[in-house]
Design a protein around this nucleic acid. Structure first.
Length: 360
DNA sequence: AAGATTTGCAACCGCCTTTCG
DNA sequence: CCGAAAGGCGGTTGCAAATCT
């Protein structure tokens, strides 16, 4: 019964391949084709297991393998595919011509995964991770200077995505109301916060609240988050924002605040009503309109005409049609530039029925 | 300059599925 | 149909190179 025994494992070499072994394997496969991996080592004169030969060929010696740094387009494809397929490296490799599953896996683990983590994105779920965000600056700011950083700031960042954070913010407000002394004990820190140069903002959360002295008449204006290394651009329903501002959120809403280096002219509620119900996550002026689509959060991926789950699953792995190629312009860009893009990869859209009070 | 630490990647390991006798 | 080996895949390791202190 069963097959004939596999290759004799005794005396088989392991470890790094020598150039001579590579040459033998290449010559044999070029002449005879890969064929049966079990018998290949013996026929090729190699003291290796067939499995080892197959691995060496598919991961390193195959002539169609593309070596070198991953392009931005490839990286973008990997992230998109990983958000759907998870660690199905072979499936991902099937969509990336010339790349092996092993190479993609290595690249994910050594580059992309770390970058996503740095930006507060869970590399498994592709959603923001609050435990990775530097909440300390937000919290200390909120405790030390209620006029500088307030509930709206928390909302602005990620609170709309997280009931936990909203509850935390609510607790902070309660603390503030119950123990105002707590605030006065932190005058020194307050001064530090007031001086942007003296306050060491965390890498992941460089919020800078601006335009404190706007008139109350602009209170309904919508803050625009322009840049942050965490995913931002949470959608805001203007009506609900106003409701939140007048309701449980007792602190004063900054009329025009930003988490970037640049002040963006405030939008009015009317402006927003006529716009899609999300705030643009504008990471860099250099990102062209063609990138906009990529900013949409992946749950919309099925609607993306360029990238659908069905297309992946129905397309043979051998057909190496590259996915949307909107970003080849970023080939060769620096790690920082990639990171900047990566950090804004997610943009969230909430249904119009979204009610912030449901979270409180 | 030297040792420590981090990074990148080839290769191995072990498990699961497929194939074959 | 069954059992065993091949094939395939994802996770992990080990080591050399690069970077930091």
């Amino acid at each position: 019964m069963g097959r004939a025994p596999c290759c004799d494992k005794n005396g088989l070499k392991k470890g790094p391949w020598t150039p001579e072994e590579d040459l033998k394997l290449i010559n044999y496969i070029q002449t005879h084709g890969p064929g049966n991996w079990r018998t290949l080592p013996k026929n090729a004169g190699l003291q290796r297991c067939g499995k080892s030969c197959r691995l060496r060929w598919t991961n390193y010696l195959r002539p169609d393998i593309k070596r070198g740094r991953f392009s931005f387009e490839e990286e973008e494809t990997i992230i998109q595919l990983h958000s759907i397929l998870g660690n199905k490296w072979s499936a991902i490799a099937g969509r990336l011509p010339g790349r092996t599953d092993n190479e993609i896996k290595n690249y994910w683990n050594t580059h992309i995964r770390k970058r996503l983590l740095r930006n507060g994105i869970d590399p498994v779920t592709h959603t923001p991770r609050l435990d990775l965000l530097d909440l300390s600056s937000l919290l200390s700011s909120s405790l030390c200077n209620p006029s500088l950083v307030n509930m709206a700031n928390l909302l602005k960042t990620q609170a709309l995505l997280s009931p936990e954070l909203l509850r935390l913010a609510s607790t902070i407000l309660s603390l503030k109301n119950e123990n105002p002394d707590l605030l006065s004990q932190n005058n020194l820190q307050e001064n530090q916060i007031s001086d942007p140069n003296a306050f060491p903002m965390s890498q992941s959360n460089q919020f800078q609240v601006q335009a404190q002295s706007q008139s109350q008449s602009q209170a309904q204006q919508i803050p625009v988050c322009t840049t942050s290394s965490i995913p931002c651009g949470a959608p805001v329903d203007p009506a609900q924002l106003g409701q939140a501002n007048e309701g449980d959120f007792t602190s004063n809403l900054p009329n025009n605040f930003s988490c970037s280096n640049t002040i963006v002219p405030p939008m009015t509620s009317q402006d927003l009503v006529s716009q899609p119900h999300y705030i643009q996550c504008n990471s860099s002026p250099a990102i062209p309109a063609s990138m906009e689509k990529l900013c949409h959060f992946q749950p919309n991926i099925g609607d993306d005409q360029n990238f659908g789950f069905d297309s992946i699953m129905s397309t043979p792995l051998s057909s190496s049609t590259p996915l949307n190629s909107s970003s080849t312009f970023m080939n060769g860009c620096s790690e920082e530039e990639r990171e900047s893009y990566c950090s804004n990869f997610l943009k969230f859209e909430l249904p119009e029925s979204f009610d912030i009070n449901d979270f409180m």
